[in-house]
Amino acid sequence: MERYFESTLLLLKPDAVRRSLVGEILRRVERTGLSIAALQMRQVDIHFARGHYATTDAQLAQMGRKTVAAFEEAGLDLRKEFNTEDPITLGRMIHEWNCDFLASGPLVAAVVQGYHCVKKLRSLAGPTMPLTAPPGTIRGDFASVSSLVASTRKAAVRNLVHASDNELDPDEPRREIAYWFDPRSINSVNPEPDLA
């Protein structure tokens, strides 16, 4: 049973802090039965932000494909806007916008723990693109911008939170926690016998 007990990273991005949503988001996380094992508010510089975001071709292509799909759906000319239709090249642009945004103001970083924590937290956050996030999710309830709007402004999608994903990279949650937190600052939560 303990093998299902996980730790993951949650970032409440500068838009969540600016909009005073930190308490509401953390309340939602805790109400699901997940626990906060470490918490800090900080301002990061662009170099730290670049180190956070993964840059494998698979991850860049995944980001770029979302923009390709949004432009196709809207009937807009992607090549005219960005001089490329290549998902990896678009992913690199989006990567830089994301880094700029992450460094644009204070944010809150948290280590979240619990059973099936990675999947549960990502479900609570909702899809990356707020436009498609269902009501009841953090992004569905508090964000509404689309990749189309953000891309035409050459800006990151304001989607409030980052939650580590282990689908493309099973090691991502562990690596991201190690990047953001000194292990001595993490108070591991023992799984409760009532299996919340």
Rank of each mutant, 00 (worst) to 15 (best):
G126K: 00
K66Q: 15
A103S: 07
A109Y: 08
D100Y: 10
S151W: 15
G136R: 11
D45C: 06
V111Y: 00
V145Y: 03
G64Q: 06
E24T: 13
V157L: 11
F82D: 13
A37Q: 09
I138L: 01
P106R: 11
K80I: 07
R3C: 13
L168E: 00
G33M: 09
L102N: 03
L11C: 05
H95A: 13
V17T: 12
L12M: 06
L107W: 01
V189N: 06
E172C: 00
G114N: 01
D182A: 04
K66A: 10
A156I: 12
P130F: 05
I88V: 14
G126F: 02
G23D: 00
L121M: 05
E6T: 00
L60T: 03
E167W: 09
D100R: 15
D45A: 07
A37E: 06
H52L: 00
V111P: 06
A110W: 07
D77P: 13
D15T: 12
R28H: 00
F82T: 06
S147K: 11
R27W: 10
E72G: 12
Q62L: 11
K120D: 00
R50C: 08
L121H: 05
D15K: 10
T152A: 04
D141Q: 07
K13S: 00
P135E: 11
K120N: 02
A156V: 11
M129L: 06
E73M: 10
L195A: 14
I36M: 03
L168I: 07
S185D: 15
A54L: 07
G136W: 05
A74V: 14
E30R: 10
L11M: 02
V118A: 08
I25E: 09
F101I: 11
T137I: 04
Q113V: 03
A196L: 13
D57P: 06
V118K: 04
R175M: 01
A58N: 07
S151V: 14
L26Q: 01
P173Q: 07
V161G: 01
A110P: 08
S147Q: 15
L39P: 03
V145E: 14
H95E: 12
A54K: 06
V68E: 14
F71W: 09
E192Q: 10
M129C: 15
Q43K: 10
E6A: 00
Y53D: 10
T56D: 00
V145R: 09
P191H: 04
L10T: 01
A49T: 06
L78V: 02
A69E: 15
V145M: 14
V44C: 10
G126Y: 00
N159A: 01
K119T: 15
P106A: 14
L78W: 04
I25C: 02
L90S: 10
W180V: 04
M129I: 13
R92T: 12
H116C: 15
R42N: 12
G33C: 10
I138C: 08
Q59K: 14
L107H: 05
P134K: 13
E85L: 08
L10H: 01
A49H: 01
D194T: 13
L21E: 13
T128K: 03
F71I: 12
L39F: 12
V189D: 05
F101Y: 15
R42L: 15
Y179E: 04
D141V: 08
S144M: 00
E73N: 12
E96F: 11
L107F: 01
K154Y: 14
M93Y: 15
L107M: 10
